[in-house]
Amino acid sequence: MDDSPFRRIVLPALLAAGAGFAGLTWPLASDHAARLSERLPDPLGRWADSAMITYQHKEFSIRYIGFAILSSVAIGIGTAEAMRSHQGRVQRRQGLLDQVLAEADQDRPLADASSLDTLPAPGAEPPQPHRLGGVETDAALDWASLLRVPSVSDSLETETEGGGLLAIPIDQHSLYHLEGGGQNCCLALAVEGEYYSYYRRRPNLDRARSLVQHLQRRGQQAIATWDDSGYIVWVYRPSAARHATPWPALAASN
């Protein structure tokens, strides 16, 4: 309903036409209209006068109402056209952006096309959750399931419906600090004994999805988690020669 043509185009046009008609026929119904018509310059004042005194200018009043009807129809059509044009501009802008990003993706050769996860077919079984440190998560590479999550709130709903965990909230993961190996210290996520270091926070699912796909095309394995303020993208880091220190049990500290 929110994005329907009725709400975006027809309804505003009807409202504008109705307002126009009411405005034009107001002099016929109002007591104060006569006083106002006296102040109007000719021929507008005479015209308004004749429209109000219906017993003297019956023919003219009928013509005036006809004019009001036609004007309100014109207002309605004009409004509908303006709304349609605006809607077209918005859609065109979105299309251009999608095209830019799609072309940008096409310009690069895929590092490993087989590694890309695909959207599961409608009605397919949800991915089976895996065990992670006693907490159920859906996969080491949970992008396939993440694709099925339209938003944070939806993923929460799906989780509570018991249809299998989708995008996993960060709080449920095991966090570590990776140190040593001649590299900087970094925050990492442990998934089935493998470490994924923090890469970037993304504000919404589309941005997170684009980034994960971009990283996968570069040959980097990536996963995404969500929290209350968006999505976090993590990239696989070989843990060889690096020391992993568990993130402190924060909940117990306070």
Binding site: V100, L101, E103, A104, D107
Partner: peptide, 26 residues
């Protein structure tokens, strides 16, 4: 990099888009 991509980039930029993560502008 074709001219059309550049035009589209410009159109999206003018429309207010500022996030072009991973774009190829070779």
């Amino acid at each position: 990099m074709n001219v059309k991509t550049l035009e589209n980039l410009w159109t999206a930029f003018v429309a207010g888009e500022r996030d072009f993560t991973g774009i190829s502008l070779v």
